[in-house]
Design a protein around this nucleic acid. Structure first.
Lengths: 354, 354
DNA sequence: TTGAAAGCGCTACCAC
DNA sequence: GTGGTAGCGCTTTCAA
């Protein structure tokens, strides 16, 4: 029924071995032979059997990209960039070599994160890219370290993207870190510089690395300005989504009615924050400042800070691809520090209220 | 080096066949035997070899979900819902049965769409879910039909989600359609009902099914209100993204300065449209109406129209899972018609300008 | 440069 | 209810 490599071999009047070599292109084959084989492939409309190939070669062309929230455009941009870079031209030749980059949505659930890793391990994935903040939970971290070690031992390359490497498995992974602390700090400094003194902070969920690092940067800036007193009052935690940004901001405005600026821990949260502020009848930036892309003219494409994030993300994809192909040149564990996700445009308006 | 099923069999003092049966759970095995096997699995930290399994069984547990734009939250919601439904509990037992649902971002490119299908075909994917509007291009449609036929012949289940089935391959797919025409019509009728007469329409790219159907619904509503004259002037096309929504809206306002309402062809476009309107110094809804979620209090979760979309989407995921497991009960080709994506809240403000 | 053949690890059929 | 075993389709030595 289905065409096999042997069929192709027969039609091209060569051995299966030769067909395999042509398809994988990693072995010298006479030009005329190659031609003949490729024609046979086309004629028969042959598609390589991935499982068989993976079984024999003990590795697959699957690359998993894990994200915390697939409905968050930030992860979409990351995943898309990585996928584009890994997948290459996007046009598969008649045969192998092409990687299958797929994104897996953990929804922020530790169980699902581990589950996907198991599934990818089962598939003998070529590489796994872990994006977004990690959970700061001893138990889960241990489980992750164990699982990742096993994956790495089995030949799967691991790439961390915007997530600090685990304590143990440093040597196992390539890592692309964001300067969350510095980004948050600069953002807050910017607002301070504009004259704001009562600055609310809509933080992410408490147990994530990104949440902590960004909050630390924010507090650093406040401390340096001598404003750390009662900072907790100005901070509200919640998930990294729009709804949470909305609700947290309402809560914040209720608790501290005369804040003049709000920092959101990421763009999606900022979207909700801006909506909440407007619903309160306040104007951005006249009545209040909100840092987020909601008040930018258009898509994140145009935000310089985010643009600087995008490039490294594509690079991360390329790196995952290269790692998967076993031609890694960068030192393992090397960390590229770049602008943080939340280093978005702060409103330029000075405070008016209070 | 790596633990195989034979190792597990040896340790449990049973045959490989028995281990396989326990792991796949689709065959009667004595309870005590099962226990022994599972313990051996745990002891040895065994993980099934997916490729080997897929090769022998001639099918894999991979399910591909194709989306047009992974950075668009709408697709994120769709993909997430489908993935959650397909993946089941999200917690894999020690062994098989679990599907690996992964999302593939075509970026709206026909070449990449076909490419992913080839890649999934190569993996002998259990199912493929195609989401979002299709390209209305004879050549590409033919290529898709051919490819999908091949996939279906090889045992891959095909699910269309928010995309009209292809002319030929009707019998091959399960399909979940959105009432794009009806949704757009109702949205426009709503605005007409509020008294709007000069309504701009920011449409999607010309060659997509969703674009055409929604535009048709919009025009129907206008025609019924006797307003179809010069409707082209009020329509601007562009990609389904925020930037495009922004630019198209500016163009629209330049061309027709006294529109009192703008309909955006999807939520992401609406986001850009709202931003453009604000940048022009106009107020929503006082100066102008914009249909989109940007002016909703918070995330799309809370939008009734979108909620009605979500449920069927989860159902589509479930269906894909079931299809993949070969226990489909619904008639193939059955179509569930539901509210359209763009049937979002229209502003309730009456027109004030002009 | 090409061919022959031995597996890769698992499933499923056929016995028992 | 369990075991034996013949492939699944490909890759990769080893020879020629």
């Amino acid at each position: 029924m289905t065409v096999t490599l042997a069929d192709v071999a027969a039609r091209a009047r060569v051995s299966p071995a030769t067909v395999s070599r042509v398809l994988n292109g990693n072995y010298p084959v006479a030009a005329t032979t190659r031609e003949r084989v490729l024609r046979a492939v086309d004629d028969l409309d042959y598609v390589l059997n991935g499982p068989a190939s993976s079984l024999a070669a003990a590795t697959s062309d699957l690359v998993g990209i894990l994200v915390n929230d697939i409905a968050d455009p930030f992860f979409g941009i990351m995943a898309g960039a990585a996928q584009a870079e890994i997948g290459g031209s996007g046009i598969t030749g008649r045969a192998g070599g092409e990687k299958l980059a797929v994104v897996c949505n953990t929804g922020g659930s530790p169980a699902r994160e581990l589950n996907y890793l198991t599934l990818l391990q089962r598939q003998r994935a070529a590489a796994v890219v872990l994006t977004g903040g990690a959970l700061e939970d001893r138990h889960h971290q241990a489980a992750m370290a164990a699982k990742l070690t096993k994956l790495a031992d089995a030949g799967t390359r691991i790439v961390f993207c915007g997530r600090p490497p685990l304590p143990d498995s440093e040597a196992l992974v390539a890592s692309l870190a964001f300067d969350n602390r510095g980004g948050a700090r600069r953002l807050t400094e910017h607002l301070l510089h504009l004259g704001h003194r009562r600055i609310g902070y809509v933080a992410g969920p408490a147990e994530r690395t990104t949440t902590r690092h960004r909050l630390e940067g924010h507090r650093e800036a406040l401390r340096d300005a001598g404003l750390s007193e009662g900072a907790e009052q100005f901070t509200v935690h919640g998930p990294y989504d729009r709804r949470s940004g909305f609700e947290a901001t309402l809560e914040l405005l209720r608790r501290e009615p005369d804040v003049t600026a709000v920092v959101a821990a990421n763009d999606t949260v900022a979207l909700g924050a801006a909506a909440a502020v407007r619903e309160q009848g306040l104007r951005i930036p006249e009545d209040i400042s909100v840092a987020g892309f909601d008040d930018l003219p258009f898509s994140v494409d145009a935000t310089p800070a985010l643009t600087t994030v995008r490039l490294p993300l594509a690079e991360a994809g390329a790196r995952a691809g290269r790692l998967a192909m076993g031609t890694e040149t960068a030192p393992p564990g090397g960390v590229a520090t770049i602008a943080a996700e939340l280093m978005v445009r702060g409103s330029t308006a000075p405070p008016r209220r209070g």
